[in-house]
């Protein structure tokens, strides 16, 4: 089993090297003529207005938080799924309770407008 992951580790390192390979080629091949205007950030062809990093709404936070909560829920479902058949009906009902509690959370979020992007 450890062997599997050693293969994956090789994949990551060789892969990172291969993905970085084009940069080597670029360094050798591409022209280099830097002047200030070229490095200005792009804003439809005019000079950029204001700071790039502006204040954003809390909705991003809420969506990613809901994602984490539901992702953890899915994490708990994977082990059950694998042995679901052999564990039978009682386990199924336990999982049903688990899901129901989380669906309550989804309904609450829905009612409170947390699922809207406005």
């Amino acid at each position: 089993m450890l062997l599997d992951w050693e293969y994956v580790a090789v994949f990551v390192f060789v892969g990172a090297a291969m993905v970085s390979l084009p940069f080597l080629i670029i360094a050798l091949v591409s022209p280099r003529s830097s002047y200030p205007h070229k490095r200005e950030t792009y804003e439809s062809g005019v000079a950029p207005i204001g700071q790039a990093w502006s204040q954003f709404n809390v909705r991003y936070y809420l969506f990613s938080l809901m994602f984490v909560v539901f992702d953890v829920e899915i994490i708990y479902l994977y082990p059950w799924a694998v042995v679901a058949r052999s564990l039978g009906a009682s386990a199924f009902y336990s999982v049903l309770i688990f899901l129901a509690i989380l669906v309550l959370g989804l309904v609450y979020a829905w009612r409170k407008g947390a699922l809207e992007w406005t």
Partner: peptide
């Protein structure tokens, strides 16, 4: 899986309550 839904099923259900509380609290 066998552990969760066997001897530790209460912990399993408790976790879902924990997740619910997190969600409600954050919102």
């Amino acid at each position: 899986g066998q552990s969760f839904l066997g001897p530790n099923v209460l912990v399993f259900e408790g976790t879902s309550v924990l997740l619910l509380v997190t969600l409600v609290g954050a919102i």
